[in-house]
Nucleic acid binder design. Structure first.
Lengths: 226, 226
DNA sequence: TCTTGTTTGCGTCAATTTGACACAAAGTAA
DNA sequence: TTACTTTGTGTCAAATTGACGCAAACAAGA
C-alpha cells in the first residue's frame, strides 16, 4: 500500500445553483467567465476547494466574493465525477443549491467574472462544463423537495400572500394547481401563520398576509400533484 | 489566480454502506481493519479514489476486491467534508449506499481486512472515522426512499411473498404496518406482479409468490406511514 | 378423521382526504 | 352604479385511509 501522502488527488471544486424568485418567475444566477476555459461563456458560480476549507466555507466564499451575498439557505446536491467534465483535467465537483430572495441582495460580479446575472430557468443560455446537467439535477431536487418540505419560504419575503405562495409553487413545479385546494391544504398544515394584516394598495381585493411558522415542530406536510 | 496544477488537493475516498436483508433483519456489511488508523476496529468498506477512476469504478473495485461482489444496486448518498474526519489529514469521503441480496454472494475479506461481516443495523459496534454518521445518513435515506420508490426488491429474491415484503418494510422502517392495508396498497400499485405459483412446504397456508414489475412505466407509488 | 393453532387472503365500513367546482366579498376602473 | 378582477370560503361526490373481522389453507396432534 502506498503511503497516504503519495496519492495524487483529483482537484475538488464546489459549484452552486442559486435559485431566486422575482417578477413571478424562477431564476438562476449565472456567471460570465473572464478566463479560460469557457471564457465569455455562462456557467454556474463555483471555486476550487482550498485545503483547510469546509464545503460550507467554500460556498460562503463564492457567494460573498463572486456574488455579494451571505447567509442563505443551502443544501448539498450531488457530487459529479465524470473524468471528462473539465477540459483542464480531472476535477470533481461537489454541488450545492441555494435559495435566496433576490430583493435582499444586490448581485455584484466579482473580479473574476465579466458579469453575473439572473436567468429565467425556462430560458437558460448554453452553459460551460457539465453545468446544464448540474442545473437540471438541482431543479429536479427543488421540485421534489418543495412537495414535502417548506423550502419555498426562503424565496419569498418575510410575509406573503396565499396567491403569491401559490404562484411560486406553480412556477417551480411548472404545472397548474387549483388555487382553492392549494390554499386549503396549506392552511390545514402548520407551515404558515396568519399575520392579521393584508397586502394593501393592490388591484382588486387585498390578500391576507401570512408568515412561515418557525416553531414548526415536525413536518408531516405532503402536497400531492398528479 | 494560481495555475490549475499548483493547487494542493484533499484526498478523495469513497465509502460504501452495503445493506443486506437476511434472517428477517436488515444488516450492514462492516470491515475489520488490518492497518492503522483504526486498526482492528470496524468501519465501512471504502478506498481512495484513483486518478483516472470514476466513483462507480471505485465502488465496483471495493465491492469486488474487498467483498467479493459485483453488479449491485447503488446510489450516491452524500459527500462528507469534516476536515477532522480522518486522523491522517484532509480526506473528503464520497459515500454510496448499496442494496444486495446476501444469498447471491459469499462475503470474502480481501487482503487488507482482518474480517468482513454482516451486522444487524440495530446492534452495530463502534465504528471508526465518522462512519456512524455515514451509516445513519444511509439508513435514513433508505427509510425515505422505500416509501416512494420500489427499492426493497433489490434485497429480496427474484420472487417473494407478500408477508416477506411486508416484513422487509417493517424492518427497514422500524415500525408496525398493518399487513392488510399494506397488501392492499401494494397490490393496487403496479410495483408487483403475480407469478401464479405459491411458496410451498412452509408451515401453515402457503403464500402467493410475486415478482417485481420491471415494465413499470412511471412511479406514482406512495406509502404513508404515521 | 377431526380438532386446534397459525398464517394468509380478502372484505367491510366509518372517517378522512381529494378533486372539481360554485359563489360571495373586496377591491379598481369606467 | 356598473362592470371586471381577484381573493376567501364552501360544497359535494369520489377516492383513499385506518382499523378491523373472518374464512380459507396448511401442519401437528388427538
Amino acid at each position: 500500500m502506498k503511503s497516504f501522502s503519495s496519492y495524487k488527488n483529483p482537484a475538488l471544486a464546489i459549484d452552486l445553483v442559486v435559485f431566486g424568485y422575482h417578477d413571478d418567475r424562477l431564476s438562476v444566477l449565472l456567471l460570465n467567465r473572464k478566463d479560460e476555459p469557457f471564457k465569455d461563456q455562462w456557467t454556474l458560480p463555483g471555486a476550487f476547494l482550498q485545503m483547510e476549507e469546509s464545503f460550507q466555507d467554500a460556498c460562503d466564499r463564492v457567494l460573498g466574493t463572486k456574488l455579494g451575498m451571505n447567509k442563505v439557505y443551502m443544501e448539498q446536491l450531488f457530487t459529479f465525477d465524470d473524468p471528462a467534465r473539465d477540459p483542464r483535467g480531472r476535477v470533481i465537483s461537489v454541488t450545492y443549491y441555494a435559495l435566496i430572495n433576490p430583493k435582499k441582495f444586490e448581485v455584484v460580479a466579482g473580479k473574476m467574472a465579466n458579469d453575473v446575472q439572473w436567468f429565467d430557468v425556462r430560458k437558460l443560455p448554453a452553459l460551460g462544463f457539465d453545468h446544464k446537467t448540474i442545473f437540471k439535477t438541482a431543479h429536479q431536487r427543488l421540485k421534489s423537495k418543495i412537495l414535502y418540505y417548506p423550502v419555498g419560504f426562503e424565496l419569498l419575503d418575510e410575509t406573503f400572500t396565499m396567491p403569491e405562495l401559490h404562484h411560486l409553487y406553480e412556477c417551480i413545479l411548472e404545472t397548474k394547481i387549483d388555487r382553492r385546494n392549494f390554499s386549503r391544504k396549506l392552511l390545514a398544515s402548520e407551515y404558515i401563520v396568519e399575520t392579521g394584516s393584508r397586502r394593501e394598495g393592490q388591484q382588486n381585493r387585498p390578500a391576507d398576509l401570512y408568515k412561515f411558522n418557525k416553531k414548526l415542530k415536525q413536518n408531516n406536510f405532503q402536497l400531492n400533484i398528479n
